[in-house]
C-alpha cells in the first residue's frame, strides 16, 4: 500500500496512549495509513485489524518442498544415479536420509519465510524507505494518516483537531 504525498503525521510518547489514541481515531472513522513504533506494541495488530500474517504458511510450504525434494534427491542418488554398496546398507537407506532431509526442510523454510518477509515489507539490503521521524526508533509512536487515500474525511484540519483531542503531539501536515 503506497502512501501519497499528502499526509499528516503525529506522535505519542507512550504505547498505552497510542493504543487509546488509535481506538478513538478508529471510532471516528479516521483511516490510519500506518503506525510507526519503536518496538512491537502488544495487541496493535488486533487494534488496526491486521489480517494474520501469511508468513507461517510460506514457511510451511517452503519447508515441505525442501524436505520432500531433499528426500527424493537422496533417493535418486542412491537408487538410480549410482547405486553404491556402502557398508552393506540398503540403497534406499531411509533412516540415513532423515537428518539431511530435516536440515534442508528447516533451511529452505527459513529462506522462504525471510524472502517473504523482506519482499512483503520492502526491506532488505539497499532498501530506501522514508524515515519520518528519527525518534520513532527511540521513544515515539508515530501515526501517519494519508490524506488523499482517505475518502471518509478529506478535511485535514478536522483530522488535526481529532489528533489534538486525543493528545497526539507534533502534528505535521505534509503536502
Amino acid at each position: 500500500m503506497k502512501r501519497t504525498n499528502n499526509y499528516i503525521t503525529a506522535y505519542f510518547e507512550d504505547d498505552d496512549d497510542l493504543k487509546v489514541g488509535i481506538k478513538s481515531l478508529l471510532e471516528k472513522k479516521v483511516t490510519i495509513h500506518d503506525v510507526l513504533t519503536p518496538f512491537a506494541v502488544h495487541g496493535l495488530d488486533h487494534l488496526l485489524n491486521f489480517k494474520r500474517s501469511r508468513i507461517p504458511k510460506v514457511g510451511f510450504i517452503s519447508g515441505m518442498v525442501g524436505g520432500v525434494s531433499t528426500l527424493l534427491f537422496q533417493t535418486w542418488v542412491f537408487t538410480k544415479a549410482w547405486p553404491l554398496n556402502i557398508g552393506g546398507k540398503p540403497f534406499f537407506a531411509l533412516p540415513s536420509f532423515i537428518p539431511v532431509t530435516f536440515e534442508l526442510s528447516v533451511l529452505i523454510a527459513a529462506f522462504g519465510m525471510i524472502a517473504a518477509y523482506f519482499i512483503s515489507s520492502n526491506i532488505g539490503p539497499g532498501s530506501k524507505n522514508v524515515i519520518y521521524d528519527e525518534r520513532v526508533t527511540d521513544d515515539r509512536f508515530l501515526i501517519i494518516i494519508d490524506l488523499e487515500k482517505d475518502n471518509s474525511i478529506n478535511d485535514k484540519e478536522k483530522i488535526k483537531e481529532i489528533l489534538k483531542e486525543i493528545g497526539a503531539k507534533g502534528i505535521t501536515i505534509k503536502e
Binding site: L84, N85, I86, G87, G88, K89
Partner: peptide
C-alpha cells in the same frame, strides 16, 4: 574386507565403498 564395513558407512565422499 567386511561386507558390512563400518568404514564405508561413514565416509562422506563415498571414497571407500564395496566392490561387486
Amino acid at each position: 574386507h567386511c561386507d558390512n564395513a563400518p568404514c564405508e558407512n561413514v565416509c562422506p565422499t563415498a571414497a571407500t565403498n564395496h566392490s561387486s
